[in-house]
Every structure is written in structure tokens, then in C-alpha cells.
Simulated assay, not measured.
Amino acid sequence: MAGPSLRLDSREQELVLEMVEVLGSSLNLGEVLEQAYGLMARLLPTDCAAMCVSQPELPGGYDWVVTRMPETFVTHYAELSAVDFVRQAVVHQPNIVLRDSEMVAPRALERTELYQRCHDIGFPMEHVMSVLLDPRGDWHGGLTLYRERQRPFSDKDRALLQRLTPMLVSTVRNCRLFGQESRRADLLDTLFHHQGGECIVLAPPAREVMRTAHATALLERWFSPLERGPGGLPLALLAPLAALAGTPGLETPPPDAWRREGRDMDLGVTYVPLPADLMGRRHWALVLRETPHATPVPEAWREKLTPREVEVVAGVLRGWDNQLIAEDLHCSLGTVKKHLQHVFDKLGVSSRAALLHHASRKR
């Protein structure tokens, strides 16, 4: 495992092997690094540590993956970053582990503004060791270890973290690249196999990426040729996405659900945001579902139920499952289940089937 400059005992070798296994165990960066840090802390005892990832062109946009730090440090870091000699040093030597003695002149640490301001906010930083994890892509990571006591990081500590650095770099790269695509694939698979629904994936404002097998027939059934634009996509469904085309932020809220009533059926369309692709482009999935006209909620029930419970009952009477009701009401699946149990108790029924039966008798 170790090169000639680093000698590890059997316990340390075992911990390094465990880290190698953990770092390749998942594409969830936070999950992997949390587990890996637990092992690293046994190899390199520290008082505090931080691991973040960011985009180089957005120096303030840090995603703190591991924080074993006083909360005040994280909350104040945006203002501390301007005087952070640690970041300024490692940026110029990516993938090279540096100690504080290699970042500032000997005995100059206590005179740095970062040192003084950290002590002002209650973080007694005494020694630092850090590395910029540069996978040569759009993202990079930073790992910094701190010791509060007068116990500097040794040559062996530095050599050990340097030995682990290529593994950490690979983890950042793989999780950022392949983890994102894996999440997109899982979500698309879920959408495309949703029972009773069809799906169209679009890149705003109107570029189609893919659609399920029966989506075309569904669109032709519900929209006349005059209502459909290029590619047969209904203009009414494209309009909300056109409004989003100039909004690059990934936290853009989805458009409201779209609905059209027919003679015997209704068509509902839900806009589902997908994770950005490798180029940072946001796609949207349009999930289309036909539902039969619902049995109306009996007036006698409305007097016993809260307005929210009436909405849940209306969803059941449309033939919707709990997940679809939750999406329509913009609440959690657990909330729908709680409302439904309250409905059963108030109306004296024991199941959805019984609820449907009693509603049909009261028409």
C-alpha cells in the first residue's frame, strides 16, 4: 500500500483498505464522504474538519459535504473566505497536501487575519492541513483538517493524506459525473413506468428529448391539430416552459398542473423538474394522466370534513392513488394518508372501496 516514504502499521493499513472500499461504495457524495471521514479521523486525529465542493467560477457557492466545525465558522465563511490563506495556498497547488507551515512564514500563523478572526468567533485554530481536490472538471473539492492544540501535523500525517488524495479526487469526480446521471436515469425510469400515465421530456422552451410509446396517441386524442405546434406538442403545455427558458436557476419552482375536462374523462398534466444533465441543462418531464369523471363528494360529507379532507376524498373518487393526490395537493404522501384516515374515522368507513361504494349510493 505505502511508498518508501510512508510506513503504515497493520491497523493503519486496514483503515486505508476500508477507506478504499467505502469511497467506491456509492455515487452519493455526501454519504460516501461521511463514512470515509469516520475512518480518516482514526488515521489523522483532528479537532475539526471541513469538506466542501464548489464550482471554480463561483467561489462563494460552497456545498459543505462534511462539517466537523463550529457552526459559527460555516455561517461566517463567506466573509472569512477573503482572508483565508489556506484556500489561497492550495488553489495554486491542486492535489498537493499543504500544512500551515508551508502556507505562511514560520511563526506567522498567529499574525494572519484568518487566525485572529477565527479566534474572535470562538474557533481557536492552531494548526491546519489542507488539499484542493481537483478532478479537472467543472467542480473541485477542498478538504481541510484543523487542530486546536499545540500539536502540528507531522510529516507522516502529510504523507498519509497525500496517499489518500488520488482516491478522494476520484470520488469527487465519479459522484459528480455519474451520480447525477444515475439520479436522472432512476427518475426517468420511475416516470416512464408510472402506471396509467404517459411522459414527455422537454428542454425549455420546446425541444423534445424523448416520449413514452403512447404519448402521441394521447396528445392527438386531447388536442386538435390547430392546438399543436411543431412536433405535435400542444402550445398550451409549452407556454409555461417558455416562461422558464430565461431562468437558469436550478431551484425554479415547477409550473402549476394543467387540466382539461372531457365528456367522460379528464386529462391532467404535471410538470416534474429533472436533475440537470452533465452540461448543467435543466429538463422537464410532462406526466400526462387520463382519469374518469369523478363521483361528486356528497353534500352530507362536506359538512363533516375539513376543506382539505374534502379535496382528498375528491381525489379518491376520481380514482387517483395517494401519490397522485399528494402531487395534486402539493403535500407529502404521509399527509394524504393521515387525512384519509381521518376521513374514514369521521364517515365510519374502513377502506377506499367502502368510501367509493357509499359515495355512489348517495348520488
Rank of each mutant, 00 (worst) to 15 (best):
S130Y: 12
R117Q: 13
D157N: 12
Q180F: 01
Q150R: 15
G197H: 14
C118S: 10
A159P: 02
E148H: 13
E110P: 09
P152Q: 10
V131G: 01
P152R: 14
G142T: 08
L161V: 04
V128P: 03
L191Q: 07
R136D: 05
D138Y: 02
R176A: 06
R149G: 05
S154D: 03
Q180E: 06
L168T: 10
Y146L: 05
Q150P: 08
P166V: 13
F123M: 14
L160Q: 05
H193D: 05
L164S: 00
V172N: 04
L109H: 14
R111A: 13
G142C: 09
R173E: 12
D155L: 13
C118F: 11
L114H: 04
R176S: 07
D134I: 04
M129E: 04
L164Q: 07
P166G: 09
L164W: 05
E181S: 09
H127F: 02
W139Q: 02
K156D: 07
M129I: 11
T112P: 04
Y115R: 04
Q116I: 01
D155R: 14
L177M: 08
R176Q: 06
P135L: 01
A206N: 12
L114D: 04
P205Y: 14
R158K: 14
E148V: 11
T144Y: 07
M167L: 15
I200Y: 03
R163T: 08
G196F: 11
P135F: 11
L202K: 06
D186R: 11
R207K: 15
A108S: 14
R147H: 08
F178L: 12
E208G: 12
H119A: 11
V169P: 05
H193E: 09
L145R: 05
M210Q: 15
G122W: 07
L160W: 08
W139V: 11
G137C: 05
M210V: 15
T112K: 08
F178D: 00
A159G: 09
E181Y: 02
D155N: 13
C175Q: 02
E148G: 11
M167Y: 06
P152F: 03
L164C: 09
E110Q: 15
E198T: 06
P152I: 07
S154T: 15
E148P: 00
L202T: 11
G196Y: 09
I121E: 04
F178W: 09
L177E: 14
I121Y: 08
E208L: 15
R149T: 11
D138W: 10
A108M: 11
K156A: 06
D138L: 03
E148R: 14
R151T: 12
D138S: 13
S130T: 08
E126S: 09
L160F: 05
V128Y: 02
Q180S: 13
G179V: 00
E198W: 03
L161P: 06
D189R: 13
R158E: 08
